[in-house]
Design a protein around this nucleic acid. Structure first.
Lengths: 230, 230
DNA sequence: TGATCGTAGATTGTCGACAGAATGCGATCG
DNA sequence: CGATCGCATTCTGTCGACAATCTACGATCA
């Protein structure tokens, strides 16, 4: 979140990023969760986490509070942390939230006529990843994240990141290997970029937003939100 | 967040809601912020907060972590908490996020054909509040919150609540007394309910969503996002 | 044999303490 | 007289400890 700002343009001074133990614990636990090492419902005991990381319980506890607020961790009634019980039935809601955020990003980009040149690089990555499902999924995620970033709405980007973490966890827990089927990925994203470019010229975002909805929801035919959200 | 579920339907047993000190500290600090007792940029020292509340620093710290994640509090570079530096220039982004969440709620209600009967009560509250700006603002906020709640998307509601807190803080800091001008409040909301009712019949949410955008953004003519977000 | 109760262990909530870093004030030097 | 340096104080980050609560296992009883 706060990367100990280093205004050192020359790079002479090493970035003395003395990350706090809270940040490190947060990052490690989060990584464990999104990597699937810990599954939903699994209890998280701050004492064992602290011992495993060789630190005290206080930083672990604060890290868990952060994770709780960002949705990866929750507290059961009998006071004890556990990985959030996200499952297949939560995916429709999470996907709706994600779609709402992405379309807001698209609308904002069009409204302010922000440049989208950087998206080409992501499409290239996507092209290079054909045949490699994992790489394709990563490039796909990076593309969508880049669009959100282009809107220059920092709070939107922050909550989008939390959201993608939760979706990742829910997918892992549901044993859904690939988010969407990997065919047509390049074509679809090229179409999106084209539509976005067109919207930037005309100033009308409706068409690209509609395509975006179809694209995102189309990747989830396995779930119950098939309607294009009129 | 978790209200120590009491399934005591009979009400014989007192709800032994042993709220943790973290929850209480969180609530108290949050209340102070949204009430305007603490202004953006003001430093928050956990030691003094703890002493003022008569508790230890640990629960205060965890409460601050939660507030940090929900956007009311942030950490300055030189490690120290302060009220988030929200100001007038942040309102456009916050309003965009709020609008995105509300329109998602409206779309979801229409898509699932959820009942909106409970909204009538809120319009009545709004009517009863004519002439009292504070009550009108509260009723207005309650109406919008109710719409979000009707969508039955718990994570949407949670992030919407965080958002409204941030907006409240930003408005307080900008010395903007009333969110929108209070005239026409009843008429506007009646129109929204009518449009929503119509959408529930036709299944087409486009019209009500468009009206919603105009309504929300119209309440903020003072800011720079006037375009109806094509 | 099965269910209930009780106790031992584990785990959390909270506290006080200590070291390191930051802040602010005063002394010193130009 | 003004700017810089140094020191004292304050505050934060982290730790270990203690009590209260919860869990799980085993003993007791019907």
């Amino acid at each position: 979140m706060n990367d100990a700002v280093t205004d050192d343009a020359t790079g002479i001074f090493e970035s003395i990023t003395t990350t706090s133990l809270v940040d490190r614990a947060h990052g490690q636990i989060r990584a464990l969760i999104v990597a699937g090492k810990l599954r939903p419902g699994e209890p998280l005991k701050d004492s064992v986490l602290a011992e495993q990381m060789g630190i005290s319980r206080s930083p672990v506890r604060e890290a868990l509070r952060r994770l709780e607020q960002s949705g990866l961790v929750e507290k059961s009634a009998n006071r004890s942390y556990r990985i959030s019980l996200l499952a297949a039935e939560d995916i429709p809601e999470l996907a709706s939230l994600r779609l709402a955020d992405e379309t807001l990003a698209v609308r904002t980009i069009v409204q302010h006529r922000y440049s989208i040149d950087s998206l080409a690089e992501h499409v290239a990555q996507l092209t290079a990843a054909t045949g490699d499902p994992a790489a394709a999924a990563a490039a796909d995620a990076a593309f969508h994240r880049a669009v959100v970033g282009l809107a220059r709405l920092p709070r939107l980007a922050a909550r989008y990141d939390d959201l993608t973490d939760q979706i990742r966890l829910a997918l892992l827990a549901s044993d859904i290997e690939t988010w969407g089927r990997g065919e047509m990925l390049v074509e679809n994203h090229t179409m999106l970029v084209d539509a976005l470019t067109e919207a930037l010229e005309t100033g009308d975002a409706r068409r690209v937003v509609r395509m975006w909805e179809v694209h995102v929801l189309g990747g989830m035919t396995a779930f119950d939100i098939l309607d294009p959200l009129s």
